[in-house]
Design a protein around this nucleic acid. Structure first.
Lengths: 345, 345
DNA sequence: GCTGACACGGAAAGCGCTTACCAAGGAGGT
DNA sequence: ACCTCCTTGGTAAGCGCTTTCCGTGTCAGC
């Protein structure tokens, strides 16, 4: 119990004294450095540590070693199942390497990302995963990239989970091709008049999905005009509100594509409220295949993204050494047709 | 750029040199200690810091100060909306105090809790929130409490979100009274023959809810026998499986109470698969009022727990000084009747 | 028995910060 | 004019580790 401020925390010095060895030996015994310690000494140290309930002072180790075992994860909102799925994947992988995961909620504010990246640099975090759609905000994006460059030059590793980036390793979610496939399947089912419920125009995830959907329709010679795309928040309420608006406008599509499952659920709720039957009166499709939403009725047609794996893949990238040029891991979505888009009668 | 291992990270020393002041002054200017620095000097330091993209070395600060700004949060599984809601609440509150939240998934293994508590003690985390049901595992529980005592004697603050505890501040979720109320409302609706889908018998959240439910029924002179309680995993699949089993057994209740919304959704899926209509043939109720599940059809009768607030309350406890005796914050649930338990015909 | 190689314990120098403690200068009281 | 007090800058001593460097002991080979 070396100092007062520790209020009774045992330090390595205490352990060494208790074991009757030097500080250096204690350190080497407990952390198996490159140097070996005679088994007998090792045991002495280990028992002493156990007896004193010694827990290494992580900040001190970080100081001395110049690096930590902290992994930062930046998400828009951890309560969103999309992100919590990714987080689980990351944590599952991180825990195997004894990394500790610190999560930051940006609440969808791009400037926060840069701020937190800087905080993590200060923490000397070993790695940093930025999850969530990029935003068409050049200033914020520039600032973020700048922080990430600093972060990496400080010895950390940074990767994105989002759209293709140029300067960093990225797990790319192929939103466009997924949406394209979905559009094709839906037209093959016989749907013709579409309506898209999109997210904020700045979010690339949203714009990519809309664009992909448009391309898919185009392959079947179906045009998607501007007024067939309604915008709303990227949330359940956003979907609800946008769908309500559509109904109020008297739009009469036979199929609605909401760019996320969460919005799709909101849209279905709006339909229910207005007495519009899904899928009889209107087909609805989503995107992501959120696990918690697999049991809504009618079951939701969607594009499955393996979010759990995505988290794990991001971790793999982050655990690997930085390559000379950014690595990309492309993740494709898979269309899953369910009841919400039954063939129109 | 003082050292090689920093690979280009600016230190306070660099900033001080750049600003032409001493280390002490630089430190005081950047962190507004009790000591003041003349405005002119302050500005010099601030610009120097900006120019060098200085980010304070958190581990070093932790060392020198003897405490960090890390808050640990232990959850069973962050992908479970129950926990991610709590996590949001915690983060919203923590972020205002510039605390950084580190999340640990225990994957429902009680021994992990103690292990992570120790890790957090090593991190010199300022506070620690243990969320999630206590388990009837005396060994693990004892071990956890022991670690928490160590944690607090090391200067940290520990609180629980769960059932009433003895030795630590706790946000108590009143599962029992919530379930009791639910039972009463359901009987008032006219339901008589009940079936309960419970979680693992070790989980107090589950047993408390079952017990409360039983009490509520008793008030209306309805007995709940042992074979009217089926156990399953605390997940969607657990609910599905348990309900299927009930159907196979030929049990014919008029109302099923699943101890969590997530299980209830699984149960409803099982009903749908077997052609049992909810609520016409069978009423179903859940517990928690998970936001993501508010749009299932039929909408689910449940007991609302303000999980977001719970997280924030836990943070308040943790932010306050330790009292001489443990503080309790009781959180009551509120019964919300929806379509899934329409009055039986 | 002597020398070189090797294994392993210990002393001590940092890591980047905070914070007593000291010193110097200016304001204000007498 | 002198002394005290207050303000504010600087010096240096840690915080608890890791790791380099040194020294001692042991053993193989001749």
């Amino acid at each position: 119990m070396s100092q007062d401020r520790n209020r009774g925390i045992a330090t390595l010095t205490d352990v060494a004294r208790e074991a009757g060895v030097s500080l250096a030996t204690a350190s080497r015994a407990l952390n198996g450095s490159s140097r070996r310690v005679r088994e007998e000494m090792r045991q002495r140290v280990l028992t002493a540590a156990g007896k004193l309930a010694y827990a290494p002072n992580a900040p001190a180790q970080a100081m001395a070693r110049g690096s930590t075992n902290v992994l930062g994860l930046l998400v828009h909102d951890i309560a969103d199942p999309y992100f919590s799925s990714i987080a689980t994947g990351v944590m599952r992988a991180a825990e195997k390497q004894n990394l500790v995961v610190t999560i930051f909620n940006t609440w969808r504010r791009p400037d926060r990302e840069a701020e937190y990246a800087r905080t993590l640099r200060g923490q000397r975090a070993r790695a940093l995963i930025v999850a969530g759609s990029r935003v068409d905000d050049l200033v914020a994006q520039e600032q973020l990239e700048h922080e990430l460059v600093e972060f990496e030059s400080a010895g950390g590793r940074a990767v994105f989970i989002s759209q293709g980036r140029l300067r960093f390793d990225t797990v790319v979610l192929e939103n466009r091709s997924g949406a394209r496939l979905l559009a094709e399947k839906l037209t093959e089912l016989g749907h013709r008049r579409f309506l898209v419920l999109a997210g904020p125009s700045k979010l690339r995830t949203s714009t990519d999905r809309v664009q992909g959907f448009r391309e898919g329709l185009a392959r079947h010679s179906i045009q998607l005009s501007r007024d067939q795309v309604l915008r709303g928040e990227f949330t359940r309420d956003g979907g609800f509100e946008a769908m309500t608006r559509a109904l109020d406008l008297g739009l009469a599509p036979d199929c609605v594509f909401a760019v996320t499952d969460v919005m799709a659920v909101g849209a279905m709720a709006a339909c229910r409220q207005r007495g519009v039957r899904v899928p009889e009166d209107l087909a609805v499709a989503g995107f992501d295949d959120i696990a918690t939403l697999r049991d809504v009725t009618p079951s939701l047609t969607t594009v499955q993204m393996p979010l759990d794996d995505v988290g794990a893949m991001a971790f793999e990238l982050v655990a690997a050494e930085r390559a000379d040029r950014p690595r990309l891991r492309r993740v494709k979505g898979q269309v899953i047709l369910r009841d919400s888009t039954a063939r129109p009668t």
